[in-house]
């Protein structure tokens, strides 16, 4: 039963996942090419100077990609459920409601994890070739909040889509914007290194709100 439910979730998100995956890989490839070109034109020493002493981050263009990926996967997964209130079919399946919702979220989060892992993997391999271990660590610490924002945006999209009233959807969207913005206040490399454990907690805290939307949907809340 669980496998069948995951199959349906995969059917919905497969195409969007592929597009986002290709977009992510293309973007990464472009940034690597751009960095490689800089190596050749200005020399490695200068680039090192820019990166280490002037705190320029060569992968800063990836900043909003995870956010976009989270929104796209979320929309692909939950909009079809809300059109004609098809989620009624899903919730009527002979599984516990909590299991159904957790499986849907797990499928979405896992597909994002795969996207992000591929991209982070590419970044780490590239940096490992040209930079020191400290720089690799700094790159990771700089990028992790962006990817956490990607998971958070996905969870917010789930919460907003399933919510049955527009008024509350708008409120949730404002809440989502405010929460996610916290991670994008500073562009300084490693700016969030001291509070990264707290940033990890953001998606953990957002996740239960999907159940609130489900509960409001089941109670038949209307405008």
């Amino acid at each position: 039963m669980k496998k069948a439910l995951l199959y349906k979730e995969l059917k919905k998100t497969k195409r969007v996942w592929m597009i986002v995956f290709l977009l992510g890989i293309t973007l990464l490839f472009y940034l690597c090419l751009k960095a490689g070109r800089s190596f050749r034109l200005v020399g490695m020493e200068h680039l090192w100077d820019v990166v280490v002493n002037r705190d320029q981050f060569i992968f800063r263009d990836l900043k909003f990609f995870p956010l976009l990926a989270g929104v796209c996967i979320g929309l692909a997964q939950y909009v079809p459920e809300m059109v004609q209130k098809r989620i009624k079919l899903t919730l009527h399946l002979p599984l516990k409601e909590r299991t159904i919702v957790l499986l849907m979220l797990a499928q979405g989060l896992l597909s994002l994890l795969l996207l992000f892992a591929a991209q982070i993997g590419g970044v780490l391999i590239y940096t490992a070739i040209y930079f020191s271990a400290e720089f690799i660590y700094s790159t990771l610490i700089t990028m992790v909040p962006w990817y956490l924002a990607g998971f958070t945006s996905y969870l917010f999209v789930a919460m907003i889509c399933i919510e049955p009233t527009w008024k509350r959807r708008i409120f949730n969207a404002v809440l989502a914007t405010g929460t996610i913005q916290l991670v994008f206040i500073s562009s300084f490399p490693g700016a969030y290194s001291q509070i990264i454990k707290w940033i990890i907690l953001i998606p953990v805290f957002v996740m239960p709100f999907t159940f609130l939307s489900i509960s409001r949907f089941k109670e038949g809340e209307q405008e």
């Binding site: 349906k8 059917k11 919905k12 079809p80 004609q84 209130k85 098809r86 009624k88 079919l89």
Partner: peptide, 10 residues
């Protein structure tokens, strides 16, 4: 469900 709702992507 009213409207014979099912999954159109299947």
């Amino acid at each position: 469900i009213e409207g014979h709702v099912q999954y159109p992507f299947m």
